[in-house]
Design a protein around this nucleic acid. Structure first.
Length: 488
RNA sequence: GCCCCCAUCGUCUAACGGUUAGGACGCGGCCCUUUCAAGGCUGAAACAUGGGUUCGAUUCCCGUUGGGGGCACCA
């Protein structure tokens, strides 16, 4: 991979919860873009919301990103350690750098201290709105020294506001959307430092993207309207802004922003449901990005090679769990049986099948059933009856309700009691001969046999299944099921 | 309410002025088959709408409608 120092992207989550599907996609695109161009991918934790940020969220987010197979060149390694030359990558550890820039803007008259309370600001905005003015001028913008002193004397703690231009427009040149124009008179003076002394998001973000030499800011659509203000800050500080690329939102099935009421929205939930990270990654890559061939399946390195911003979609995309499940099945089928078992281990454990009870090897069974697995829990789900008797499914019950079922099972029990060798081919020949002898259609025999022995109406190829189950289990279940059918 | 973005099958999307509007998921049918899958073949299914521009618009421009996002001392 060629390295390209000119490309540096970042993902900057605020640690106030799990990694959301939308965040995962943003991370993926930033990572893919960096990797595609041989650049650097940076992870930064935006923990300036003192009340909502938690250490657990940091860990959860890092875990989710790693689980997706994405790595970062700079950023936190865990809650204690970090790597990279632009540290710290936690905003709360960079407080002095924001204060330094705030001071600069204050000194240069590009920002001012604002003593208004939340209520006063709200009231002023309401009044302006009623008067048909889009944005009121902040009274603190032209405070006299005496007024300032009296505010200080009254114990009021100031926030710092950045002066936005009163006229003209700010143009964001977005890599995905093109030029987007914003009227400056509509933008109020932005708080850059809270009364607590901490920076606000839009300010910290600018300072850090500059300090970390970020070249391409790839982020969600919800930030597009923040961008003009950020650009004004870059300008005031005399900094070159990065290039911006705003990704459209991910919507739920009802067309509104994907949220918890639509079902699983965090990466961990998908992991826990038994999705493979490579499948989720592939699916997310396609949700808002495409290639001219409309290709669907990409190995990780193929994705890196193919991905670029021009393929990104401008319109929002609806998340489709059904297609995700299909894709997961594709990846499951591509796995070697031993890998299927390995990946499914947590789910096998949960089902009490790991370590496996006596019986055929899990690997053998995984090979037998592999094309039916869609999700990891399907592994124990389809294979459990080899190790233990299971409840009859409704369909199996129906099959066994056929009038001839009981006599068929009785006949088979008799046939198989001393049958040798108890292996696939001979069993098939013998059972087909049995059908002929009794003038029964194969289906009339095969179906109840399968149902009685496996407890279900679908499953592996019948005669191999009998072989793997072994004579003892087959006969025991034949008898038990038969008894359960009651007198004929 | 104001600002911004967006608009091709149900969904994800291809097309970059001239195509029988292509692919994928899902759905239907057929084949394969002891079941369920997988696989193969196949079918139904889309250019939101009204004006322009043009010899010609899905494609370019404007309006309408619809959807989304933003308007915090939250990120």
């Amino acid at each position: 991979m060629t390295t390209n120092p000119a490309v540096r992207t970042r993902f900057a989550p605020s640690p106030t919860g799990y990694l959301h599907i939308g965040g995962a996609r943003t991370t993926l695109y930033s990572w893919l873009f960096a990797r595609h161009h041989g650049g650097t991918f940076v992870l930064r934790i935006e923990d300036t919301d003192e009340v909502r940020s938690t250490a657990e969220s940091v860990t959860a987010i890092l875990d989710s990103i790693s689980w997706l197979g994405l790595d970062w060149d700079e950023g936190p390694l865990d809650f204690e350690h970090e790597k990279g030359p632009c540290g710290s990558y936690y905003q709360m550890k960079r407080l002095s750098s924001y204060q330094e820039q705030t001071k600069r803007l204050l000194d240069e008259g590009k920002a001012y201290r604002c003593y208004c309370t939340r209520e006063e600001t709200d009231a002023a905005r309401q009044a302006a709105k009623a008067a048909g003015q889009p944005v009121p001028e902040d009274p603190c913008r032209r405070l006299s020294d005496a007024q300032r002193r009296s505010n200080e004397a009254a114990g009021r703690k100031p926030a710092v506001r950045f002066i936005m231009p009163d006229e003209g427009e700010t143009v964001v040149d977005d890599l995905i959307r093109g030029q987007v124009h914003f009227e400056n008179r509509l933008a109020p003076d932005l708080v850059i430092q809270k009364t607590t002394g901490g920076p606000t998001y839009n300010f910290a973000c600018v300072c850090d993207d500059h300090a970390m030499r970020i070249s391409h800011v790839i982020r969600g659509d919800e930030h597009l309207s923040n961008t003009p203000a950020q650009m004004r800050i870059y300008e005031a500080l005399g900094w070159q802004p990065p290039k911006f690329a705003h990704l459209s939102m991910i919507l739920g099935p009802d067309g509104t922003k994907l949220s918890k009421r639509h079902g699983a929205t965090s990466v961990t939930e998908y992991r826990d449901q038994g999705f493979l990270p490579e499948a989720l990654r592939n699916y997310l890559a396609l949700l808002g990005w495409s290639n001219t061939e409309s290709r669907q399946l990409f190995a990780p390195d193929e994705l890196v090679a193919a991905f670029d911003l021009p393929g990104c979609q401008k319109n929002p995309a609806t998340f489709d769990p059904v297609k995700l499940a299909w894709m997961n099945g594709e990846y499951m089928r591509a796995l070697a049986p031993a890998d299927i078992v390995k990946r499914a281990e947590p789910f096998l454990k949960e089902a009490g099948l790991f370590p496996p009870p006596p019986g055929p090897s899990l690997e053998r069974l995984a090979a037998l059933e592999r094309e039916k697995f869609k999700l990891l829990p399907d592994v124990p789900g389809r294979v459990d009856f080899f190790y233990r008797e299971t409840e009859l499914t409704d369909k199996a019950r129906k099959t066994l309700a056929a009038p001839e079922a009981k006599t068929v099972l009785a006949g088979l029990t008799e046939l198989l009691t001393a049958f040798e060798p108890f292996t696939e081919k001979p069993l098939e020949e013998a059972i087909r001969a049995f059908c002929a002898r009794k003038s029964l259609k194969p289906g009339q025999v095969f179906h109840p046999l399968r149902a009685a022995v496996s407890g279900r109406a679908d499953g592996p190829t019948l005669f191999l299944m009998l072989e793997l189950l072994g004579r003892e289990a087959v006969l025991a279940r034949l008898r038990k099921t038969s008894a359960g059918l009651g007198p004929n």
